[in-house]
Nucleic acid binder design. Structure first.
Lengths: 336, 336
DNA sequence: CTGAAAGCGCTTACAG
DNA sequence: CTGAAAGCGCTTACAG
């Protein structure tokens, strides 16, 4: 049984493909197709389970009803959760999601953007990295909505949905200080994007506002490319070599590595050092003791992203680019 | 700057689009295009960063270099990890992944399959549910490779990549019994697919082979549709209402709910009951005490899936459908 | 109220 | 060694 085309439906209904097309696309009234013809064609479409070929439609109209999602690593729990929420919201509007993981590799990301572009995607949701500015400009020149999230590229004028990381880290460190901590370490990545630096700045500001002095020996910057075992061992070294009473992690996966490190060196969270993680994770709540964390509002982030896309896609005039910053929530779980 | 088409390249190079097409598709030699022309055209393509429009190519050839991935929930850590591995392996062969979450809802799954079909996908990777048999047959009639994983629909003759769940659960229960446990509970879902029932059967067989008697009051079947809070509370009820010294969970997310339940009722893993989970999860290794688990070989599963797809796509004759079953690995982490 | 025809950007059988 | 032309399945401006 061959897949039916619009031609087959037109033949079955004894009308032209133009008429069928108008009916499929809800333009029957506007094009004043008679009710009888509409009924007849709709019946035939339903009986045969005809679905218009989206590839042909896409070639003709330039739209694909597909959104590209480019993140660091789709299996990272933060991105996986965002991906799911975005999928749900996009699905309800008739859009599908095609994804790829950049691994923070600019070459791979550029390649992916070209691949995406050659598929007529309607919009792009990207957690960007430095070095892909030209490719982003290309998409913007094409008038495709581009929404950055998680991270921003300030050189690029496009929409950004993010979280106030400065304040998130400031609040976390402030909580440590209120709790009497004095030797507060920051474990972060060496990725050079504003959103990572903001976390560092928030840490530094809170340290200084709290009357402590900034000690760069307490800040560990983990190279993105290294294996988890290397990361764990760097963290172990830091924790063993310095006097430390509190640790703030700046990402989800670093927190997990940190908890392993603490376990490996047979220390205990809270009795040896207080810990605050980043991005909530089931493992934090199940941990004994429970791990406090800075939580990003995933649902709201996904919602804003999709709304921005739909707004751009539906508006004739180019809407102004928007910057939407949500506050993170500090969840303190382990009262000392 | 408009996106260039094959026509523009042909004009720039002063050749026909046929020639450009042959060169793009690596058929230059076979079609005996002269070396000079090849060089010239390739130079122009490189200089202008021309990329063939995949939508047009897809319409013409019927291939899209896109694979559909249909799972229960892409944010579930097991599926997210599989999705990432599949992405990596597909990417290296030039394929992209479009995903959707079925939520174990047959209506949604059917709808998604129709949507996918209308996009000319080249292959389908599906964690199936009952009720979508007709749609799968439709894809198979189209001669599209369909790979089931995680679960199978035995009524359908297609490829399946899975794990020996019977043995996995049998081994887990056997380990409990060797450890002196006598009141062994099974917490599973009510989803009616063979792979879930196999887990139940493995449990039952090991109970009986171990000289214990099967007690249906120790088996809790959680409805898929209920909220996590309801699940946790059902598990709490079971654990409080019966004498139980060991618990086997049959899925990843149920294990997580179970650990929360145990925590809520202030019991402790190992001192109150031994626990074995399903599908490894970072939270298990970080838990105190560490949680033993049945581990599915994610890397191998992803690899097999992609290999099956590539094999079918590249072979002229219809290859025989394959059933690939991997053993699960029982990881015992908390010696009593 | 409805249809014939052009065209989206490719690939490929056919011709020379 | 290379090109003109048909056609994949749609949408839409134009004509009647």
């Amino acid at each position: 049984m061959k897949t039916l085309s619009i031609k087959d439906i037109a033949a079955l209904a004894n009308v032209s493909i133009t008429t069928v097309s108008f009916i499929i696309n809800g333009k029957a009234k506007e094009k004043s197709i008679s009710d009888g013809v509409i009924k007849k064609v709709e019946k035939i479409i339903a009986e045969n389970g005809y679905k218009p070929n989206q590839t042909a439609r896409s070639l003709r109209t330039g739209n694909s009803y597909t959104i590209g999602l480019l993140v660091e690593d789709i299996s990272n729990s933060f991105f996986a959760k965002v991906a799911r929420k975005i999928e749900d919201k996009a699905y309800s509007k008739g859009y599908k999601i095609i994804y790829s993981s950049t691994e923070n590799n600019a070459e791979k990301a550029k390649d992916l953007i070209h691949l995406f572009k050659s598929r007529n995607l309607d919009a792009y949701i990207i957690s960007p990295i430095n070095g892909i500015e030209k490719e982003i400009e290309m998409l913007l020149n094409d008038n495709k909505p581009v929404i950055f999230f998680d991270r921003n590229l300030p050189a690029i004028q496009t929409n950004y949905v993010g979280v106030d990381h400065f304040k998130a880290c400031y609040d976390a460190v402030e909580a440590f200080i209120k709790d009497g901590k004095r030797k507060i370490a920051l474990i972060t990545t060496d990725v050079k994007v504003d959103q990572i630096m903001e976390r560092h700045n928030g840490y530094e500001a809170a340290i200084s506002d709290g009357g402590l002095s900034y000690d760069e020996n307490l800040v560990l910057k983990i190279p993105f490319k290294q294996t988890e075992l290397q990361t764990i061992s760097s963290i172990e070294n830091l924790l063993l070599s310095r006097e430390i009473d509190a640790v703030l992690f700046s990402t989800n996966y670093l927190t997990l590595s940190g908890l392993r490190a603490i376990k490996n060196i047979k220390r205990t969270v809270n009795s040896d050092f207080t810990v605050i993680g980043y991005d909530d994770h089931v493992a934090f709540e199940l941990h004994s003791p429970e791990i406090s964390t800075v939580q990003q509002p995933i649902e709201e982030i996904a919602e804003s992203i999709i709304n921005l896309i739909l707004k751009e896609l539906s508006s004739k005039v180019k809407p102004k680019k928007e910057n939407i910053i949500f506050p993170a929530t500090l969840i303190l779980r382990s009262p000392n």
